[in-house]
């Protein structure tokens, strides 16, 4: 396949960035998007240029490191697929593909396509945990949890924290991420004890980082590689309202 890649190049956090065009003549349709970028980087290194910096780790779609906005869509055009699992056969020969980093104020660009996603860690640290020891693996069955609840919590737990929801949202809102992380624990008996505190702290951390607000576009859900649904945002909205009222009466 022949491709023209328009890739965001930026030297360091304070450098000014721009889109640079690269031509590739012989891309295998069976290569993944990241493998294609690897090949481009090899060419760049050979010709003495600086390779393109991009985040990646497992390349199995489970680590949440890859973070490419491909033609304006985080993780590219395939539904429920991370950029590392996206294959070049989904593009057409001769196509021009624009690759940009996640765009959000809390995610400053560090280099080229690499952004700093630590505000999401801060949200997780604000309440995405259970304070007491709840037992080791074999104790898991000591607390009976219905299949529905277990599945529901698992659907939330599927979030890999890649930040595509923030990148896709026209308001750069982190509601889907925060909702998935809080709902996962708030739905399980082990997490219920800290339910109110958790949702209040996580939302406060989210607001503090400067993410935008949810206006129910649904773009986050559409690009989420793990299919996290807007229903978790509804749950978080509900739990936050209840927790806020309890807080007013000193009961949260």
């Amino acid at each position: 396949m022949k491709l023209t890649l328009r890739i965001w190049r930026q030297d360091g956090q304070n450098g000014s960035g721009r889109l640079v065009d690269y031509k590739m003549d012989d891309v295998s349709p069976d290569s993944s998007f990241l493998e294609m970028l690897d090949l481009l980087n090899e060419d760049l290194i050979e010709s003495g240029d600086e390779p393109i910096a991009f985040d990646h780790d497992c390349r199995e779609g489970i680590c949440g490191m890859c973070s490419l906005t491909i033609n304006g869509i985080p993780h590219g055009p395939e539904r429920m697929t991370t950029a590392c699992q996206l294959h070049m056969r989904h593009f057409s020969d001769g196509e021009t593909i624009t690759v940009e980093p996640w765009r959000a104020k809390p995610f400053p660009v560090l280099q080229d396509l690499v952004v700093d996603r630590s505000p999401m860690d801060a949200i997780q640290q604000a309440g995405g945990f259970i304070s007491v020891r709840t037992g080791s693996a074999p104790d898991g069955n000591a607390i009976p949890i219905s299949k529905e609840i277990a599945d529901y919590a698992m659907d939330a737990a599927a979030c890999i924290g890649c930040g595509a929801c923030v990148a896709a949202c026209k308001n750069a809102s982190a509601m889907l991420f925060t909702a998935a992380k809080s709902s996962q624990l708030n739905s399980l008996p082990q997490g219920k004890a800290e339910k109110d505190r958790r949702v209040l702290s996580m939302v406060a951390s989210m607001d503090e980082a400067g993410f935008g607000n949810c206006t129910n576009y649904g773009e986050c859900q559409a690009v989420c590689p793990k299919g996290i649904s807007l229903d978790f945002i509804a749950q978080m909205n509900r739990e936050y309202a209840v927790a806020s009222v309890k807080q007013i009466f000193g009961r949260a």
């Binding site: 328009r6 304006g72 624009t98 959000a104 809390p106 750069a172 400067g210 559409a222």
Partner: peptide, 29 residues
């Protein structure tokens, strides 16, 4: 107030813009 915060949350927009599912009504509120 929300709109101002939303604008601030993305100081630099994408060069290639795309909409996957957001309705026209939702985008023009």
């Amino acid at each position: 107030t929300l709109k101002i915060q939303n604008k601030k949350a993305r100081p630099q927009d994408y060069e290639a813009k795309a909409t996957v599912q957001a309705s026209l009504a939702s985008r023009t509120m």
